[in-house]
Amino acid sequence: MDWVPVVFITFKVIVFGTCMFYAIKWHHDQGKKAKEEARLRQEAAERAPGAGTHV
């Protein structure tokens, strides 16, 4: 029975480590996606007719 805690703790560490990796990766990817969308919106606004014209 001494192996049971070792197996369960090892399994728990592997599962939590994997979940944390994918959670961090997902948040990082969402930040990159938001920055890219903001950059594309900015470029579209700069290319829009009448944008940046001064009287």
Rank of each mutant, 00 (worst) to 15 (best):
F21D: 01
G50V: 07
W26C: 00
P5M: 09
A51Y: 10
W26K: 04
H27R: 09
F11E: 04
Q30A: 02
K32Y: 04
G31V: 12
K12A: 14
K35E: 15
V4S: 03
F16I: 01
E43T: 12
H28D: 08
Q30K: 04
K32G: 02
Q30S: 04
R41Y: 10
T18D: 05
T18N: 07
K25G: 00
A34E: 11
E43P: 05
A23T: 02
K35A: 15
M1Q: 15
V13Y: 00
I9N: 00
K25L: 05
R47F: 08
K32V: 07
R41A: 15
K35W: 10
R41W: 06
A44C: 07
A34W: 03
P5R: 06
M1P: 00
W3C: 05
H27Q: 08
Q42M: 09
M20E: 05
E43K: 15
G17R: 00
F21Y: 07
E37L: 08
K33V: 00
K12G: 06
G31W: 06
P5I: 07
I14L: 14
F21L: 01
I9K: 01
E36P: 01
A45Y: 15
V4I: 13
F8S: 04
V15K: 10
D29Y: 11
T10L: 09
H54P: 02
V13H: 01
F21M: 04
Q30P: 01
W26H: 05
T53R: 11
R47D: 15
A51M: 10
M1E: 07
M20P: 01
V13A: 08
